[in-house]
Nucleic acid binder design. Structure first.
Lengths: 199, 199
DNA sequence: GTCTATATCAGGATAGAC
DNA sequence: GTCTATCCTGATATAGAC
């Protein structure tokens, strides 16, 4: 079911397909899950768990903040298959069902939080202008990936996905040096625990 | 059908709903369209025509390039409803049907072309660094919008859409002044017809 | 717990009167 | 050209044997 949700979404996946692909009888499935919806919920939570560590852990690891952001964007992704999690937002049955949408909301929120932390590190390190809003940049990075999938599928070609990702990394680098301020000064309101001075 | 495609996608829309909403008999529909697919194709082409002029015309109009890009991003959009066109890419029946996907491919391509032209103008005008790749930035801008919809629906809140859009505009502005080069020099390979010198 | 067989209903399309 | 009535299939779920 997890795979089928990724390939075809929730609404378009039938119990029959689940049975065929899993080799399990129809009755067994309904013995363990009261309905297709509950099965989908379990599958979705599993898909979120599959993706989250790979997204969040590298961001939490030590390393140069801007490089971590670039690395996050460059993580290999199958642009033409779409996002296991993000795709659910376009499924009308999922988007209108708060219970099914919850794992999706949660997954995006967790990645957002991790991104914001790294963006703050980058600002503190003088790699990004202090005038940038970390929430905006974090949402932009997530949107770039999700939107990249849309463009890639629309063209049946991963090129626009790669372009968008490369574009936002280019822009981050182009925006990098705060024109005149000294990198190590101008502290933000938070305690500068992970401040990092560029040479 | 156009409305239903927007609200629920293609696969999730039944002929019965079309009949109910339009007040037309089932037979009438099949008199004009041989199948649901042909009806959907017509509806989709109509949706593309609805959106394209509003996206492209302002970009082709005269005006400051960077402001045109910012204006394109800030065009009011119903973030929680998703994109009439982009949403189709997540519908498995559409994505696997070249005939249905064609209008979508085409619409994105046309906006991309218009964006690239304006980005070149901005570079020629010295508003953006010449090192930026117009195709990348154009794909990034489109991805930001499409991905913003995904984030907004995931959170059932338009805030992340607005953040992403604001974020990319912030980055464009932050990247703006090419550090040291004279704005009016360093011509690109194309004839600089619409060159614009910043004071 | 798993299986096959079956019930129920909606999606998609057709028939044929008007 | 439009309508109502109807057909066929597959999606979802249940029954009940093993």
């Amino acid at each position: 079911m997890s795979d089928l949700m990724w390939e075809k979404g929730y609404a378009a996946t039938s119990p029959r397909e689940v049975r065929d692909r899993s080799g399990v009888g129809q009755g067994s499935m309904y013995h363990h899950f009261p309905s297709k919806r509950e099965l989908a919920l379990a599958a979705l939570e599993r898909n979120c768990q599959d993706l989250l560590p790979g997204s969040i852990d590298p961001l939490s690891a030590p390393g140069d903040p801007l490089e971590k952001l670039a690395g996050h964007m460059s993580t290999p992704r199958d642009a033409l298959k779409g996002c296991k999690v993000g795709r659910m937002t376009q499924d009308p049955l999922v988007a209108t069902d708060p219970g099914l949408l919850a794992p999706v909301t949660d997954a995006f929120e967790k990645v957002h939080t991790a991104l914001v932390a790294v963006i703050r590190e980058a600002i503190d390190a003088g790699e990004l202008p202090a005038a940038l809003d970390p929430d905006r940049i974090a949402s932009l990075l997530q949107a770039t990936i999700q939107g990249g999938y849309v463009l890639a599928i629309a063209r049946q070609d991963r090129a626009p996905y790669d372009e968008a990702v490369a574009g936002v990394v280019d822009l981050l680098r182009a925006a990098a040096p705060p024109p005149a301020a000294a990198p190590a000064s101008a502290p933000t309101t938070s305690t500068p625990t992970h401040r990092k001075v560029r040479p």
